[in-house]
Design a protein around this nucleic acid. Structure first.
Lengths: 348, 348
DNA sequence: TTGAAAGCGATACCAG
DNA sequence: CTGGTATCGCTTTCAA
């Protein structure tokens, strides 16, 4: 253990209770003086069978005394299915927007009696990851981002997943898709800047890896918005560091841009500060617009214009999952679920 | 589906391949013309047994052809244990600091061949949640926050968890503890402000629920730092909204404070902006200090002083878990793992 | 109302 | 070298 960790002396623990092994339903049955079947009936409240009240009590008491906890694997093995909904855990720090969405989703799914599990997928790519997920035999799989191919979908379905839903830029053969087309975000921003009379438009693209799936479509959206006009689009790679922003700002006048769309509000804040430190006036010399409509944009001066993004509600996605689980044969649906609207404030 | 969702017509899918049921190792065996045992030996590279090369090939081909994926539940049922490390999924939007920590941890654990699973725990409280986790028979459980009692720890251990580690303000009987004492954060901030000559000190406490386990200790830390001095501490409840901050700022002069510790950098930014809009000079009239050392603090003007927090490295925690799994009988260790140091910039 | 027993899928022992 | 077979913990007929 390294420097940060400082061991604290403990009073020697009282001799721990004999580490008997994990209690099973058979143990409960034995203690209650009944059969395993009866234990199962009682603990699952099986309605098809009536168990006498004294027996029920004995079973419950025995279970409590032993600290019995049913074995999920054994149960789902026997049942032939589970109610586990699996999502890969995001491997990049994720904004408050997406966090809220995930929470809502978990809540909605647990209302429908599903168990949501985020699987720590690291270093597993594409279909390799799909195999790992499939080993858990989830009833449904939700996959944000791209990276799952038709192969992966097939693997999951063959392993019993009744619903596979992707949340990403494009739909995947065989899976339901919630299309989150981030081009729309860039398109909004580009159109807005153009309408405000700007013609030489920069687009900040984060250098941090893992963000390409958002940043490139956003860039492309700006390009699309300005295609066929007299405006130009300049790609501006930028790392999320003060020095990088300062360097970019230092050559700002040379770039001759009159507006910039900054990927999101955080990059916008970073760049805007660097520009102001360089004496570039916002919005007079250069208009700035971000995205994601974070709180911090409202706190900047000038207040930051931004693109507000509307994600699907967790409840709706939960319902889609539930519907598909009940009717897996239905043709995969594709929904466009990303709403983007400009919030015009003072920086543009 | 609601307004945001727009169904997109699809070309009718080509007749889906016959939905044969999930292939098992028996199917692979049949197709390869060998026994299930042989399949198991081949697919697991069992070294204790030599299988002829042609047989191996036939098995592998059969497995691939069927798209065979082993059934994790069956495997761990048979094996009597799994390599699943379970964590409850955070139910509140979590900052970049903690996200990074989780990712590092997942990476380190997967290097050690564990599978990290974040369990969506919603509406399950304390020991009730522990039972739900125990059903999955994880080999280790990591629990951030308080909320797990000695009972819960006992349940988990009885169900076979070989390591239970809590990350929170206080240690729990029977479990390893990574003490993250947020009092230290407040203490740092309080001592710093006092040393800068401030005596009437406000402490912003978020009104958002779920943050108490961080905010209250931070408040208490400030109190502790100033106990026995001539300084006063004033608790300032604040919701994370512009209006709330404006209201607080409006009565600022009446409060007569000359410094404020703002829970974290985001609340600091919120309040600092509101103060400046009210004509309160920072740091002249009021010193401001935040916590978490986020990027945004460096971008504010004046640059925000903050408390830098050092979390344990994911690698260290992973090693603790692995050590404990190999030797569960060892007495629970308690480590202090939260480092806090003031980063003095211009706002204080 | 309760009990005996089959079987879910994978593995590891013991024969052949 | 390979094939039966018992086993893990639980649910669910079928009998008693």
């Amino acid at each position: 253990m390294p420097y940060v960790m400082v061991q604290i002396p403990k009073t020697p623990a009282p001799s721990p209770p004999a580490p008997r092994s994990v209690p099973t339903s058979a143990d409960v049955a034995r203690l209650a003086g009944v059969s395993r079947a009866t234990v199962s009936y009682v603990l699952n409240n099986t309605s098809a069978v009536r168990i006498s009240e004294p027996t029920r009590r004995r079973v419950h008491e025995a279970a409590k005394e032993l600290g019995y906890v049913p074995h999920a694997a054994a149960r789902s093995l026997r049942a032939g299915h589970s109610r586990m909904v699996l999502m890969p855990a995001p491997s990049i720090p994720v904004g408050p927007l997406y966090s809220r969405f995930i929470n809502e989703l978990q809540w909605a799914l647990s209302r429908l009696d599903y168990t949501v599990v985020q699987y720590g997928t690291v270093g597993l790519h594409g279909d390799e990851a799909a195999r790992a997920w499939a080993e858990l035999r989830p009833v449904a799989v939700l996959v944000p981002g791209s990276g799952l191919g038709p192969q992966g979908v097939a693997v999951l379905k063959r392993s019993g997943a009744r619903a596979v839903v992707t949340l990403g830029p494009k739909s995947v053969e065989g899976a339901h898709a919630l299309l989150m087309n981030h081009e729309k975000v860039g398109h909004c921003a580009g159109a807005h800047l153009y309408a405000r009379g700007r013609r030489r438009i920069g687009v900040v693209v984060p250098e941090e890896s893992g963000l390409e799936f958002f940043s490139l479509p956003r860039l492309e959206g700006v390009r699309r918005a300005l295609r066929g006009t007299d405006a130009t689009v300049t790609e501006l790679p930028l790392a999320y560091e003060e020095e990088a922003a300062a360097r970019l700002a230092a050559r700002w006048r040379a770039l001759g841009l009159d507006a910039v769309f900054a990927y999101n509000d955080e990059y916008a804040m970073l760049l805007m500060r660097a520009l102001q430190d360089q004496g570039v006036a916002v919005p007079e010399d250069t208009a700035v617009i971000g995205a994601d409509d974070l709180m911090l944009g409202r706190l900047l001066r000038p207040r930051l214009s931004t693109v507000h993004i509307e994600l699907p509600s967790g409840r709706d996605l939960a319902e889609l999952v539930d519907r598909t689980v009940h009717n897996p044969a239905a043709a995969p649906e594709t929904h466009k679920v990303l709403g983007a609207t400009v919030v015009h404030r003072d920086s543009s």
